[in-house]
Design a protein around this nucleic acid. Structure first.
Lengths: 83, 83
DNA sequence: CTAACTATAATTAGTGT
DNA sequence: CACACTAATTATAGTTA
């Protein structure tokens, strides 16, 4: 995305992939924070990666739980067949 | 972010805010998709906004449920006091 | 391995239709 | 309203230390 266009598939080289992951992980959460702040949005992001033993929960555990519960309630009330 | 630097607070004008939300919502999910594809990452994003009656669940309901369950199991096993 | 730098690609605020 | 355009900002691949 900068010195070269991104090729839209898994980055084969492990070192490159790890570095890219770190940068993009930061970038994604920054974008998420901006969307929440600039517009009136409630959101959460949960990320699992091979580079960390624990999931990254954004913005925090409390919001993630609250948001997921609302999602589950919505899906149930809408009688969606997803459970 | 383009013709003007972004001011990091709620966009007061409702029309501007709605337009910005639409653009940034698309942009965020694109970045999320890229992170998943380029690096080996499992993730989900749930977004609530005043502009839609239903939450946006990315990449889909099944992944969101799976990811959230893993998060809950992790938190429980780690004996975190978050429930 | 990490972190800083920088050239270039990608995103997007403002604008026009 | 939605979409296309584009100037300007922001993100980041590759590089250097």
């Amino acid at each position: 995305m900068s010195r070269k266009k991104v090729i839209f598939s898994l980055i084969e080289n492990e070192t490159d992939r790890k570095v890219s992951h770190k940068k993009r992980h930061i970038g994604l959460l920054k974008k998420a924070q901006e969307l929440m702040t600039l517009c009136e949005v409630e959101m959460d992001v949960i990320i699992y990666s091979p580079y960390s033993n624990e999931p990254k929960v954004f913005p925090n555990h409390g919001v993630a739980i609250s948001t997921f519960r609302k999602f589950k309630e919505f899906a149930t009330s809408e009688n969606k067949k997803i459970w």
